[in-house]
Write a protein that binds this DNA or RNA. Structure first.
Length: 509
RNA sequence: GCUGAUAUAGUGUAGUUCGGUCAAUCAUGUUGGACUCUCACUCCAUCGACUGGGGUUCAAAUCCCCAUAUCAGCACCA
């Protein structure tokens, strides 16, 4: 009987199964449906989820943030629930005033469905409270050891002297810390974990520190919570059900588990995605800032940077970024982010919106012998007359890209105009009218190139990461400010500024 | 050094849960072609991968072991 089934083709097996056992067949089909989900399902999520996006406000958001933000957003979309934006500003050294402004802007650009925003700097009392509780439970102590010393002891799985202090002593020291009786660097609160834990990263990590050298912009504090404490407290208090974050937090998940267990709280479900390398752009906030200060970059939206605002300026749509990072998913494998993939996604969105225009790089003027004035009609979008035409008047003189002349072609088709033949005399070129027939140009395999009447085009600069291109473009492009146009045979660009000179930011081919 | 994880075409990804439907999915990319007054779009074709070695089994991308490589953590950063 088994052999009989095995002898059937896969399709036949499915048909038979459907006939004999419809409920099994239904289950099979359901399993196949699942394949359409890009992201894997989350456990215990059917009744809705509470998730978070928790950036550190040290600068504008970049591609790395977008991955976390969109991944969470995608699950919220699937399961419904609350999406909390939590500004993790517990380290004044890593807070940038402008970021309080820029982060929400970037989130607006991404179009996240944030339901609530909280600032950790508003919640210091909550952290102190849990800190005190941990001390009272006897699972946290105030450590006055030198950093190096402690590290050495930790590596040897040995306890530091402070660990044996009584609950009363610890509570007293904590109060003194809060009163400002200790200087920066000489004291911290540590959690008693397990000194014999095989992973040194788990052993007695710090919960609070004293910091007085840098004031915080939003809170007046002497004692600052460290991230494992503040994150554990907030994840619990805010009712987080699922946390998706980078694998650099894997060890923190283990550390935070100690806090959850001591407090009798239930830990959320965690997923840690792998590290994402991004070719060619600077992602480190501090490096970007340095570069901007040094004048190396024009600002946070410089074309060389991987910030979301830099991409927006180049005409990358947030939906394209979303599609790209969702496709990458939450795998724990380290990956290399590919601009090609992102560009392809962006082109999907942008191609049909962008009208086509002529751009002439490095214009060279030509007088066309034997020609008569004529007005060219060029389609705004190929194959769609309803989008209208551009009318370009030719009166005898025009400009073409220098590179095209240097390519050595003897017959050239001026797109939407006519053919010309080119002759080179020493360093200069002469051009002669060579008929209107497109077919003739095709037969001769003549290049079809973009052109503009002499003195007609508007100066145009295309900003590109690997070098700007200057030339002239059709004046009508000025009406496309802040939108995408395609310069034929150059690529898609976002028109950034118009006026005497048009500035276009290059996005991709 | 210690701890943990990961390894599928150039890139990303599906398949690994529970071995057989995998001669391995989809996208991007390469190359060629069709269409086209753009090197765009669309369409057709093409190229291209289970890290290596053992083992279990009738059968391994899938399970086990070893090796290698990569990554993360071991901060009074997040």
């Amino acid at each position: 009987m088994i052999a009989e089934v095995a002898s059937l083709s896969h399709e036949e097996q499915e048909i038979r199964l459907e006939q004999t056992a419809p409920e099994l067949f239904a289950a099979l089909s359901e399993k196949k449906e699942k394949k359409k989900h890009t992201l894997p399902d989350l456990p215990n999520a059917e009744d809705g989820v509470v998730m978070r996006f928790a950036p550190n406000p040290s600068g504008p958001l970049h591609l790395g943030h977008a991955r976390a933000a969109f991944l969470n957003d995608e699950y919220l979309k699937r399961y419904g629930g609350k999406y909390i934006l939590r500004i993790e500003d517990t380290d004044p050294k890593r807070v940038d005033t402008d970021a309080y402004q820029m982060v929400p802007e970037d989130i607006g650009w991404m179009g996240l469905n944030i339901t609530e925003t909280i600032y950790q700097s508003d919640r210091f009392p909550l952290y102190y409270d849990v800190g005190r509780q941990l001390i009272e439970k006897g699972v946290a102590y105030v450590c006055r050891c030198d950093n190096e010393e402690f590290k050495n002891l930790k590596m040897k799985k040995a306890a530091c002297p402070c660990r044996s202090q009584t609950v009363e002593e610890a509570a007293e020291l904590f109060d003194q810390m809060l009163e400002g009786k200790f200087a920066e660097g000489e004291i911290s609160v540590r959690l008693k974990t397990d000194l014999l834990h095989p992973d040194p990263a788990m052993r007695d990590f710090p919960l609070f520190r004293v910091l007085t050298s840098v004031p915080h912009q939003r809170v007046d504090a002497i004692v600052y919570p460290l991230m494992n404490l503040s994150v554990a407290v907030d994840d619990h208090l805010l009712g987080m059900t699922h946390v998706i974050r980078g694998k650099d937090h894997i060890a923190n998940t283990g550390r935070q588990k100690f806090i959850f267990d001591y407090m009798g709280w239930k830990q959320p479900v965690y997923r840690h995605y792998g590290r994402m390398g991004i070719e060619g752009v600077v992602l480190s906030t501090s490096q970007m800032r340095q570069g901007i200060v040094a004048g190396e970059y024009t600002g946070w939206d410089d074309v060389h940077l991987g910030t979301l605002r830099a991409m927006a300026r180049r005409g990358i749509e947030s939906e394209a970024v979303r599609n790209a990072v969702i496709e990458i998913g939450i795998g724990e494998t380290d990956i290399q982010f590919s601009w090609e993939n992102l560009y392809a996604k962006n082109k999907d969105i942008v191609d049909s919106k962008a009208d086509r225009f002529f751009f002439v790089a490095d214009p060279v003027e030509l007088t066309i012998d034997g020609s008569h004035p004529v007005t060219a009609k060029a389609m705004r979008y190929p194959g769609d007359e309803t989008r209208g035409f551009r009318e370009i008047p030719f009166t005898g003189k025009l400009v073409v890209p220098k590179g095209e002349l240097e390519s050595g072609a003897s017959l050239i088709r001026l797109k939407d105009l006519f053919n010309i033949s080119i002759r080179k005399d020493g360093g200069s070129y002469t051009a002669t009218y060579a008929g209107d027939e497109l077919q003739q140009a095709r037969d001769a395999k003549a290049p079809i190139i973009q052109w503009l009447p002499a003195g007609y085009g508007t100066p145009c600069l295309i900003k590109k990461a690997d070098g700007d291109i200057s030339g002239v473009c059709e004046p009508e492009v000025a009406t496309w400010k802040d939108r995408m146009v395609q310069f034929e045979r150059v690529g898609f660009t976002r028109i950034d500024a118009v006026g005497q000179q048009i500035v276009a930011y290059y996005s991709h081919r």
